[in-house]
Structure formats: C-alpha cells, structure tokens
Design a protein around this nucleic acid. Structure first.
Lengths: 210, 210
DNA sequence: GTCTATAGACTGATAGAC
DNA sequence: GTCTATCAGTCTATAGAC
C-alpha cells in the first residue's frame, strides 16, 4: 500500500487511468461515458483499460465505491463521535461537507443519479451493508435531549434530512441556480462558504421550534 | 389542441409514445435509454418513434421541456403572485411541490442530472430564457421586509435555496435514504406529507434568526 | 506494458411491404 | 399508420505485434 502523497506524485499507469476514469464517470455518468473518453483523458490507449481493469463496469464500480465513501463515509465518522455535542457535530459536518463539495461538486449528483438508475447494485454489488440507525451516536444524543424536552419530539430523521438538504442540494442544483441568477462559480462558492456558519444557526433555530 | 382529460382517455399513438418516452427517459436518463426501450414501453414498434418524432434527441427535448415545466414553472406562478404574503407563498409552494414530487419522484434527479450533463443545451436548445431576479414578487416582498428590519439582512437567495432544498432534496436522496433507514415507500411519503406543515414553520424560525 | 487492428454486439435510423 | 428487415455507425472487448 502506497502512501497517498506518493500516489499523487508518482502515479502508476493503473492509478492514472483510475483517476481519469473518476473524472470522466463523475462528470458524465456511466451510460454517457465511453471507454474511449477515459483512454483519451488518461493519455493512454483504449486497450490498456481492459488490460488493467478487465471491463468498463469493473472500473466504474471502483470509481463508484470511492465516490460513495466520499459522499457517505465522511459523515459517519462525524455523527458517531461520542466526544462532541449535537451542536458541534452539525457544525463540523456542514463545514467538512462544504469543503469537500467545493472540491468535488459533481459527486452528489453522480452518486444519487447512479443509485437511482440501479438501486439494487448499491447493496448486492457494492457490498454496502446497512447500519442500525439507533446505534448512531447522534441519534442517541437526540433521544436524550428529547427525553429532557430540550428538543422537539418529531422524528429526528427530519433534522438529519434538513442538515444534509441545506448543505448538499445547492451543489446539485448549481448549474440551474447559477443560470437563473446569472451567478459566477466564484460567487456561488462564496455563497456556500457563508452557509458554513449560517446552516448550524438555522438548524439551531429549527431545533427550538418544537 | 385537445383538452387534457380527453388526451388521457383517448390518447393517439403519438401521445402514447410520448408518454412512454417520458416514463423511460425520466427513470433512466437520456444516455441509458434505448429507442427500443421506448418502443417496448409504448407497445409500438421502433420505426414509429422516428415516424412521429424524427429522432431520439427530438423526442427527448419534448420530454425534457415538459419535466422542466413541472420542475420550475410551477414555482414561478406562486412566487410571482402579488396577492399572497411571503409566508403564504412558502406554504403554498412547499405543499404544491410535495404533491407533485410524490406523483413524480424521478423528475428532480432527471432534470438536474441532465442539465449537469449538458448545461449549454438548457439555454440554446430548449429556449430557456433568463428572468430578472429583482422583478420576482417574492424578492420584492423580501426587500420591503428587510428594509423594515422584520427579516434578516443576508442574501435572500439563501432562503429560496433553503425552501427548495428541504422540499426537493429528500426525493433526490430517497433511494439512498430509504436503504440506509430501511424505510418503505409508504413511510417515506408519510414523512414527506409531514414536511408540508413543518417546512414553513422551520423557515419562519430561520427568518427570525437574523 | 503499451500499442494497432479488428472482431462481435448493439444502437439509431430508414427502406419498403402491407 | 404500422410493421419487418436491414444498413451504417459506434461501442466494448480482445488478439496479436513490439
């Protein structure tokens, strides 16, 4: 196993092709991507893709798994941390997520539309097993606060949906939003930076609602 | 021009094919859809698609335009109504949107991922012209309330983003969300029904934040 | 390991019978 | 209007030279 910085500096052909595939698949989706596009993007020949990865689909699965990790796994470490308060979890989650999304703006729409295209694959092929929702530390903390009536009694899933919605959705709607409001990419990113501080405040206001 | 109810009861072959195309395109996206899929779904032969619509792309453009109307135009009539208050606009918008989304859950991810795949087409081919954002009645009302300090001074676009995020995003993330929480479609729809009343309350709480 | 050339399957579109 | 049959182009994957 190579260290990450070493991979970035001295990528092998295999790694170069995988990174090219990640860029193309994430931008255009599985069906619209041709293996020729990946070959061209990587700077190598078409035949090498099959030499290293056997098929378009196997290469896609690798890319999908990486993007899924980026999209989901980053959350899990945060919401499961027993050392932070509910409020802190939300602040950290939103801030880290927006940083990731500014770097990888195409990831959410890629992941969600590919899952929508083939929901079965999510579980069967990518080995994406379920978690017991009750065991997540954030849910535990919520339950305790609800018992002490410090937080409203509605389904805590609503709060999780709201945090993720307000954080992720603007990136998914970005092309349409920017077109409708004649907004540059820089202005958009600036707006998202503002939301790092605003969303936790808003969520706090929502929590006081019940 | 036939009346809508008449179309639903006595659809011509052309209308049947277009409806079949709408279902298939909206579920699988442009690139993953084969003209043969549409033929099969419509119950007619492949050749008829070209007889009525000349090409896959022209048929797609029709479907895209309809879905875009569903996705956007429904908003415009509501946010531009001078007869309703800001608060009423939000209530009506959320309620109508959620009704539409429960009936057409695939529309948002379809529209947004196709726009993401080819943003230029949005304007050049589909004739989707810009609106002057300042002229929208909702923005006007916001400005007046902000001037009277009844509403926070941050960019009103944030509120619009929040309303649309909390309303639309759960439908986009539905397959993933339902998988992670082992939620049935009925339970999900019930959760969305709850949000019709909750979102306006939450937005109100956000508005008192500034 | 990396390339060129090509096989083999599939796709969108059309010709032509009825 | 609706069908069957088929063309021409494109795609993934592989064989084989270096």
């Amino acid at each position: 196993m190579k260290a990450k910085t070493e991979i970035e500096k001295n990528p092998t052909t295999e790694e170069k092709i995988k990174e090219a595939a990640r860029r193309v698949f994430t931008r255009k989706g599985y069906a619209a991507t041709r293996t020729r596009d990946i070959a061209e993007e990587s700077g190598f020949n078409l035949a090498l893709i099959n030499y290293y990865f056997r098929s378009k689909e196997k290469l896609f699965d690798l890319v999908m798994l990486e993007n899924l990790q980026l999209f989901i796994h980053s959350v899990m470490g945060i919401v499961n941390n027993p050392e932070t308060t509910l409020q802190e979890k939300i602040e950290i989650l939103v801030s880290h997520y927006i940083d990731m999304l500014i770097k990888n703006p195409d990831v959410p729409i890629f992941v969600l539309s590919e899952i929508n295209a083939d929901p079965k694959k999510l579980i069967s092929r990518l080995g994406f097993d379920k978690v017991n929702h009750q065991k997540i530390y954030l849910v535990k903390q919520w339950m305790e606060l609800a018992a002490a009536k410090k937080v409203p009694a509605f389904n805590p899933i609503h709060i999780m949906i709201n945090v993720l919605s307000m954080t992720i959705f603007p990136f998914i709607a970005s092309p349409l939003l920017r077109n409708r409001t004649s907004m540059s990419l820089e202005e958009f990113n600036q707006l998202m930076e503002e939301r790092k501080k605003l969303i936790p405040v808003w969520v706090n206001a929502i929590l006081r609602t019940g």
